[in-house]
Every structure is written in C-alpha cells, then in structure tokens.
Design a protein around this nucleic acid. Structure first.
Lengths: 197, 197
DNA sequence: GAATTTCTTGACACCGTGTCAAGTTGACAT
DNA sequence: ATGTCAACTTGACACGGTGTCAAGAAATTC
C-alpha cells in the first residue's frame, strides 16, 4: 500500500466516478475505466477484486469527498419541525445529482449482485433515518397529519425523495434542479403536515 | 403460422409472464423460459428473434388479456375532475401489480436494449396521457392548484404514480395494496388540487 | 403417403467478467 | 551497481448468457 499504489487507486476511483457521471452504467465497463485511468484492465484487478467492490469503493470515495452526512446534519439544526423537514428535503435533494452517477450504476447492479445491493440499501437506509428524524420533529411539534403513523409517514417521505423520482422529474421530464427542489418540498410538506396549517 | 405454431407461441408468452411474476428478471433466462415451456432453447428463437422482442411480445400478450385500456377508460366516465383523478389513480394503481413482473424485466433491459426501452417508454407515455387527461379534468373544474401549469401537474402525477413508487411502498416498505391505493390517492389529490377545497 | 412446418441436438461466435502465469519496469536499500 | 520488491504489463483462458448455423428427426397438413 505504498504512495504509488494509493495514488493509482484514487485515480481509478475518480475515473470511475467521472465515467459514471457522463454515460450510462453499462457503457462503463471495467476495461473502459482501466483505459481511462491509464492502466491495463488486469492492473485494475490488483486494486479491486470485482466490479461490485469497485463501485462500492467509488461510492465511499465520493462520500468522503462530499461529506454527505455533514450536509444532512445541518438540517438537524432547524428549530421547528416544518423547517427541519424543509431543510432535510433540500439537503438530500441537492445531493442526489452528486451521487446519481454511481447510484445508477449501483441500482443497475443490484439486480444481479448482492454486494452492490447491500451497499445501495445501506445508503438508502441512511436517507430513511433522516426521513424518520424529520417525521419525529413534526410529531414533536404536533404538525404531522393525525392520520399518519410515524412509520407510514417515513415510508412516504422516503419514497417521495427517492433517486428514481429525481430521475423521472429532472432527467425524463426535463425539470431544472430548482424546479425539482421547489415542487418536491411542497409535495413533502403537503403529504406529511396537517392540512389546517 | 399454423395452429400448432400459435399454440406454442402463446405457451412461451404465458410461461414468460409466469416466470417473470415469480422471480427476478435476471433469473429468467431464455433457457429457463424454454425449459419451462417444454421446448428447446433454439425452438424459442424460431418464434422470437431475441430476448427484447420476447419481452415486448409478452407485454402485448398481457395487455390483450387484461385490457388495461378498458380499465383506464372507466375513469373517463367520472363526472367531476376530482372524481376522475381518483378513479384514474385507483385504476392504474390496481393494474401496476398485474404488469409488475414484465415491467421490471423491461425496465432492467432498458439499460442495455433500445427496443425494450422503447416498449416500456411507450407504455409509460400511455399512462402519462391518462395523467394529462385527469389534470385537464381538474383544470376544467377549476380545481387544479393555481401555481401548477398543466405540464408540471402532469409530470408530477405521472411521477407519483410510477411503478418504482409502487415497488418502493409495497415491495420494499411492505405496504398492502389497499394501503398503497389509499395513500397514493390522498397524495395525488393533495399534490394537484387547491388546498382550499 | 408425401410435402412441409416444427422442433431437436450439437456446435460455435461474441461479449464482458474474472483468473492465471510469466515477464517487465522502476524505486529503494545496501 | 546490484539485488529485491511492488506495481504493472501482455497474453492466454474459463465461464455464463445471448444469438447463429446446420443437419436431421418428428409431427402436421394436404
């Protein structure tokens, strides 16, 4: 694990992220990544045992760079439940485009690879915890719709905030990121909070 | 295209649907389907040129059997815009589980196969037309939120009603179909209609 | 009963992933 | 400067799944 080794490792990961960000996952083959990183395909296997672990490592690498937890933490600072919900929605919604490339690859692999699925599920369960925290803040303030249990509300918010929905609205429907954030905030609020306030 | 030929063709399609309904798409290989249909793998290629066209044919076959258009048409009979929205949401939401098996396979193939993607997009654009019709009915009655254009509203409803959201809530979160229908109806209504009514 | 369609068996090519072996390059230590 | 070790290279191969081709058997149809 010398300096040189870590250097190429980082280059591989960065190249992987770059390729995934611009180009569909199945067009990002192991050989494509190796070529773009300036090494042989076999050399890549000296650093990562298989495609799934490469993608997982790339995800972690990205996480370290952008520190998603810190961004989400800021939503915890909000005073009221309503503000907290909004802060969380905006924080997560802003991070989706950052992780979309690798996320899409992980989702595609989830069909066939248990390891990839586990890695993606892990990320998604972290988001779910954020949803649950926002829901709890609403409950504390008495702002949750009375006909929703906390679990139901969390499921609903988590689904509304899915990467797939971001993909549908911004990629398929062509919405701008701002339009997405605005509508999805309103939708989340309308879905979870009492109609009378 | 004799009697025998059509017979096996139908058997292949039905077997395909059966296998897709119970088991993930990548576990439904061409050879699996052939075996389950009681013919050789090569015989299957005498009826369908490739996997994508087989799936597309299976989708059409299913459409003919369940007649999804007829089911959606009933929502057109509703008098008020609000009722029409609700009828459409329930009609489509009820059909999602029927098409989920083949839909999932088509979605998975969409990553790699243009033909599969076209077939799925075609289905989804049919749903989108239904969404647009419901939105227009709301507009006619003056019940659409004033801050939504018809396109935005259609995009939003179409996204809310996506197969992915059904999958997230019923398959991942474990909601019953009834719970899904109830919540998604409420969500759709809340997202599109004026808050004051 | 003969012609034709349907299906079978078996072989092979292609693609992408993953593995293995043998050899090259370069950095560093002594 | 020489030997050692890690990083990397080239080239070969296995595997699984899709799709193709050819030759022959079996069933249908007329």
């Amino acid at each position: 694990m010398s300096r040189k080794s870590e250097e190429t490792r980082a280059r591989i990961l960065q190249t992987t992220l770059d390729l995934l960000q611009s180009g569909s996952p199945h067009l990002t083959r192991i050989s494509d990544i190796a070529k773009a990183a300036g090494i042989s395909r076999q050399a890549l296997y000296l650093h990562f045992p298989n495609r799934a672990e490469l993608l997982v490592a790339a995800t972690k690498y990205l996480d370290e760079k952008v520190n998603i937890d810190a961004s989400l933490a800021e939503s915890r600072a909000a005073s009221s439940g309503m503000m907290r919900l909004d802060a969380f929605v905006r924080a997560w919604g802003t991070h989706i485009p950052v992780i979309y490339g690798v996320g899409r690859a992980l989702m595609a692999m989830s069909d066939t690879d248990a390891e990839a699925r586990a890695a993606w599920d892990d990320r998604m369960s972290a988001v779910r915890h954020g949803c649950a925290a926002a829901v709890n803040a609403l409950i504390r303030d008495g702002d949750l719709r009375p006909d929703l249990t906390d679990d139901t509300a969390t499921d609903l918010l988590w689904t509304i905030l899915s990467v797939r929905n971001w993909e549908a609205l911004t990629q398929t429907c062509g919405w701008t990121q701002d339009a997405y954030l605005a509508e999805i905030s309103r939708l989340s609020r309308g879905a979870l909070t009492r109609p009378d306030r």
